[in-house]
Each structure stands twice: as structure tokens, then as C-alpha cells.
Write a protein that binds this DNA or RNA. Structure first.
Lengths: 148, 148
DNA sequence: GTGATTGCAAAGCGTTTGCACCGTA
DNA sequence: TACGGTGCAAACGCTTTGCAATCAC
């Protein structure tokens, strides 16, 4: 399984510019923080990390940048038992996630078997299925090691 | 597929009493509202509906009752794209949900194929999988009909 | 230069807490 | 009677908005 590491930041910048958004120092700091993270981050964490590279950054800018990135489908909100304000980059092909509940690390996996299941449920329930979420919660290898 | 309708309220009352909680008029109103609903409801909706049967009810009591019911695993928080503050009764056997994004109606289905998938992902990623969420989002038969 | 972007302060919103009174068991 | 439950008002934390100054293009 491929480790989720960094995403091509240049693509993020291009997409932002193609939509009329400007590349400022503060925005770069926020984008880099998220794109380079291998774990889910909430606004405050993003703020704290980004601020190390751009001292003048305000929390408000983090929120505004998150809104733009989400709108461009570069990031997605991640739902967890203790809240749903964390974010993580979107990968192509709409794969599914395993999230470490200790450190927030994320891995992706494919769920080929889901297609038939969704079709079956749609038939039996009479619902038109628009979207689906499959998410596994657990403890990653590093955190298993650390808690010994 | 079985339509999710009402849940045996007496069981809810028993469980509350067995845990040292008292049955007041306000609490009954809140419990009945949730147990009799076939769709997800947020605190304000629960408040509005329950208040019809108990005019003195305050929103604070709704929150406090929700906390107790969730702690007793009688209800669960439901996560949706536009927020995660809605609740729905828990059914035995940890089945999965299809939620109508128009009206909030819920149907349950079983996901037998998931066991092997989770085992596979656990092996390949090195994660200890503790929990999983599978949730389908769509439009129920009633809402399809109404939007014609 | 134009218009997007910024930080600050303030407003907004959903949720929780402190408290004195009330009601169940 | 004892103690859990209640509503109200206030506090709280997270998120959004108004505004004048700033900066990318």
C-alpha cells in the first residue's frame, strides 16, 4: 500500500490561479501545510504549523483559504467521532480512507466490492444513491509501536 | 427492506431508569420524538417537535437528554455533508444507513461484504481497525416522487 | 491601478455551564 | 426527603463578517 505523503503543490497553485485567485505568501503557507501533511489537520493545527513559516498569518485567513480549497475540491472535510472540522487533501478516483484515531495519519484504499453493494441497496430501498462514505477508524503502525 | 419506523419506547425508559435516570414529562417528550422518528433530527428539530407535547420544554434539556441517550447507545450522531449534529436511534447489529438528503429519512442495510474488505485493509496498511462507517447518501422514494 | 487578500475586532451561532427552583422515586 | 432534572441567563469555543489597509497581477 502506498504511503500517503505529499501532493504536487504546483498543481494546487495552478488551480487556484486558473480560478482567479492570487498567490500570496500567507496562502502559500496554508496550502503547503495541508498538501504536505500525511495526517488530517483542523483549522487550529493548520494555523499553528503555517504560522511557523509566515508569522503574520491570521486564523481568519486559514478559514478563508480552507473554503476556497474545499470549493475547488482540493481538500475535503473529514468526519470523525469527536468532530468533523478536520481536513485532508482529495485524491483522484474517490478512494476511501483509514484514519488513525491517535495521530490522524491517513491511508487510502480502494473498495471495489462496494459498487455491487450500492447497486443492491439502491434497488431494495428505492433510494437514488448519490454518494457514499466508507471510512475506517483505527490505530496506525507508528502509534501501535509508541503505546507499547 | 424493512421500513425504519418506531422503536420500543418502553425499552428506552427501562434503560434510562436502570441507569439511575428519572422519567420526567420533559424527558419523555424528547425520547418519544426521537424514538418515533423515521428520519434524522437535529437538536432544534427535536426541540420544536417535543415542545408541541410539552410546552415548558427548554432547548437545554434537549441537549442534556441527547447526551444521556448517546451515552447509553440508544441514539447515535449522524454525519452528513452539511453538518454532523443530527441524531438517529441505534439499531442492534450495527447495520449501515442510507440517508435521504432531502428529508432525512433513513433505511438500514447489511454490509456482509465489508468484513473481508476491512480485514484486507488492516493487513495491507498495518492499521488496527477499531471501527468503520459506511453510509450512503441519496434521495428516498417519497422525495423522488415529490420533485416531479 | 484595480480588485483580490489581509488582520483585527466584533458579531454570530450552536452548545455548555452555573445556579436556584422543581419534581421524581 | 434526597437527589436528579429543569429553565433561564450567561459563558464558551468555533466560525464568519465588516472594514480599512495591503499586496498580487
Amino acid at each position: 500500500m502506498k504511503l500517503s505523503t505529499s501532493f504536487p503543490i504546483q498543481d494546487w497553485y495552478s488551480k487556484l490561479q486558473n480560478h482567479g485567485y492570487r498567490l500570496t505568501e500567507t496562502r502559500r503557507a496554508v496550502v503547503e501545510t495541508i498538501a504536505n501533511s500525511d495526517r488530517v489537520l483542523d483549522p487550529n493545527q493548520i494555523f499553528a504549523i503555517s504560522r511557523e513559516h509566515c508569522a503574520s498569518l491570521g486564523l481568519v485567513t486559514v478559514y478563508r483559504t480552507l473554503a476556497k480549497l474545499e470549493q475547488l475540491s482540493l481538500i475535503q472535510r473529514v468526519h470523525q467521532p469527536d468532530g468533523c472540522s478536520a481536513y485532508f487533501p482529495v485524491v483522484d478516483g474517490h478512494q476511501h480512507m483509514v484514519i488513525c484515531q491517535d495521530c490522524g495519519r491517513v491511508e487510502y484504499f480502494t473498495g471495489d466490492t462496494l459498487e455491487s453493494l450500492m447497486k443492491r441497496v439502491g434497488m431494495e430501498s428505492g433510494y437514488q444513491i448519490h454518494d457514499h462514505w466508507l471510512q475506517l477508524l483505527g490505530k496506525c503502525g507508528f502509534c501501535q509501536e509508541n503505546s507499547r
